[in-house]
Simulated scan of single mutants.
Amino acid sequence: MSETTAPANPSDQRSDSRRNRVRLVAAARELVAERGTDVTAAEIAARAEVGVGTLYRRFGSKDALIRDILVDGIDEVQSVAEAALDDPDSWNGLSTFFAFFSMTQFANQGIAQYLASSIDLADEETYRHNGRLRTLVRQIVQRAHDSGSLRADVTWEDIVILSRASVTADECLGVRAAPDQWQRTCAIILAGMRST
């Protein structure tokens, strides 16, 4: 048997498979962050420089790949929420979480879409992740209320909705939002929520 017709080394195939998987995940993360969840399997594969069939072999479907990416993003938000609960200063914890939560939605269109809708509520993993994040936000807000640092009339639901308010405005009355507008809006919202 010549060298050109010898079967491929199984360890080389596994290395290629791992490399392709990493490339697909990286490409999907970039595209979903830039454009949201409506990207196509072909676009993801093209950015990863692999065939569409490779995406389906590795993940089963484009939706499964995107769901994995979104769940990873929510896990990161949850980690920041957990750190906020460990912060000895409840206001600093709430502020840090609120800024990160807002920034995540600004920087990642896919996560913003995911959080703004009730995507696939029948999906147990999605439901569990959303429920955990809601619980953490409630705890952060309760802690800030208990310390007296957060206005008594501000609810955890307000925090969730206001996190979107700081990142969604692009233009009004011909005024274009500056690139750092979300940060300014976030700071103004936080100042308005703080107990005086």
Rank of each mutant, 00 (worst) to 15 (best):
R47H: 02
Y56W: 04
L94P: 02
T37D: 00
A165N: 06
V154N: 03
E76V: 15
D153V: 09
I44S: 05
L65I: 03
V137H: 03
S117G: 11
G148E: 06
L136Q: 13
A28P: 00
L55A: 01
R132V: 11
S117D: 10
V141P: 01
N108Y: 11
A84N: 03
I161C: 13
R57Q: 13
D153I: 07
W156D: 13
F101P: 00
Q139P: 01
A83R: 04
G53A: 12
F97K: 05
A33G: 08
R18K: 10
I119A: 12
A112R: 05
L133Q: 10
E30S: 07
Q109S: 10
I44N: 07
A99N: 09
I69A: 05
Q139N: 06
E49N: 11
R47N: 01
N130G: 05
T37H: 01
D72W: 08
L24F: 04
L133S: 07
I69P: 00
R67H: 08
Y114T: 04
D146Y: 09
W156H: 15
R58P: 04
A84G: 03
P88C: 07
S118Y: 14
I69H: 02
Q113V: 00
T155Q: 08
V154R: 03
A26E: 12
G93C: 06
V32I: 14
D63F: 05
Q142T: 10
A107C: 06
V154P: 00
R58L: 12
R18T: 06
Y127R: 14
Q139H: 09
G93E: 10
I44L: 05
E82D: 08
V32E: 09
S95T: 15
P88K: 11
V22R: 09
D146G: 13
A81W: 07
R57A: 11
L133Y: 14
F101C: 05
A48T: 09
G53S: 09
I74K: 08
F97A: 05
Q78G: 13
G148I: 06
V25L: 13
F106S: 12
L121R: 10
S79H: 11
F101W: 04
S79L: 08
T104K: 13
Q113I: 00
V52D: 09
G73P: 02
W156P: 06
T135L: 14
L136Y: 12
Y56H: 06
D87I: 08
A84P: 00
R67T: 07
A165I: 08
R143K: 10
T37I: 10
S163C: 03
K62C: 01
G51R: 07
A83M: 01
